[in-house]
Design a protein around this nucleic acid. Sequence first.
DNA 1: TGTACATCAGTGAACGCGCGTTCACTGATGTAC
DNA 2: TGTACATCAGTGAACGCGCGTTCACTGATGTAC
Lengths: 239, 239
Amino acid sequence: VSRAVLSYANMYLVRAAELRAKARAEMVDEIKAVARRHLGNEGANLSLRAVARDMGMVSSALYRYFPSRDELLTALIIDAYNALGTAVEGAEAKVARDDLTGRWMAVCHAVRDWALSAPHEYALIYGSPVPGYRAPQDTVPAAIRTVVVLGGILTDGVGSGELRAPDSISSTVAEDVNRVAGIVGPGLPLGLLSRGMGAWVQLFGMVSFELFGQFDNTIADKRAFFAHQMAAQAAYLGL
Amino acid sequence: VSRAVLSYANMYLVRAAELRAKARAEMVDEIKAVARRHLGNEGANLSLRAVARDMGMVSSALYRYFPSRDELLTALIIDAYNALGTAVEGAEAKVARDDLTGRWMAVCHAVRDWALSAPHEYALIYGSPVPGYRAPQDTVPAAIRTVVVLGGILTDGVGSGELRAPDSISSTVAEDVNRVAGIVGPGLPLGLLSRGMGAWVQLFGMVSFELFGQFDNTIADKRAFFAHQMAAQAAYLGL
DNA sequence: TGTACATCAGTGAACGCGCGTTCACTGATGTAC
DNA sequence: TGTACATCAGTGAACGCGCGTTCACTGATGTAC
């Protein structure tokens, strides 16, 4: 009997703790959601008091959930990288594995679409760094998801023999490109990966230019222009 | 006699007005210089009071020179575009006219060098837009200087027959690219200009990634990596 | 040559806000025995 | 079954700051006649 009672009591305790943890997690989510909305008005220069006001709470109550404003910012940054990563992975997964160009273009458009749907979160991670804020190391796993997907496409292309290694690269650069290969595609020919990195940079450069206003009054059909440039780079890669 | 006297008096008046104007212009320059220093600490979220404090003045005194904080920001933005434009034009002019690759690379490195020397001014013009600030139209002439230099290199290449037009482009994109041609190189083959724009975007994407920390812990020799990517794009353009 | 006047850079106080963070506290909920 | 106790989300006041902008003013300089 005593074992059964103990077991029941234990379950109960665990369950209660779970409920408490769940309520807590929901609260954290709501705070982040409200904070995300605020990024729009104030940029990275987010105000805790404004967030609290919007939630009908007193500002000090937020300290139950985040030890400081910077921790909240860090959480938003990681969430943003993950939202982008999820969007990119999802879009790429829908394309037939052997359609390398399709997969590459799906990633490009997923990045752009996500950025357009959440411009302030995009700015938070790819815009100017927040003054006085230094990102901790724990953003890294979330941050590399997109580039890992791109690397996977190249790796598949090399595996199937569809992609051939282009120009070789000098040793100074090779060392750095090799470091990247270790993360996104071990064994990738460095010349190819180097071109891939160029395309990756162009992809985000394009999205940033569009979002940050460099194309205003110049490019009318921004989606078409983007698609054209991305397709050109994909072709250059040999996809 | 009266004509001589009048003329002298006139000269005197003009001279006094000039002196006053000069003192004013120097003051404006100093305010901007101090404000530029402050961009480093606070980002675009510049504080007039902090600037005034640094100058040993009371904050309201600044209103003699700038009608509002936004006007000061606008002045800084235009100055930044012009500083970049001057650096780029100067570097490009030093290279022999027939060395198209050299000219192109000089522009690339000038952009990067300037950005590294004035990272906060770079962020002001190519980073996330300042929340609540809308850039007026008068930044445009300063903003296009760099892209005009790049266009000039392509135009020279086409003129000398060294550059051939690559792939043609679809009509949707052609309209937009043609609009750009009107500014940076009337008569440029649109396929070539489109590639040039891709390279232009990649150039700034690369500088932004470097400055905004995307290459941290990944690319050690950032200058070599940059040079490699820029040279690859120049080759792709046919330079 | 000497006085009245205009210009205008810079002052200082004030208005009406905002902020992050700390701290002692209330009050609900649920546990322990 | 009923009382004592622990947990902890949220409050409200306070600390010590910051901000952009307005406004009446002082005081130097230099002009007009």
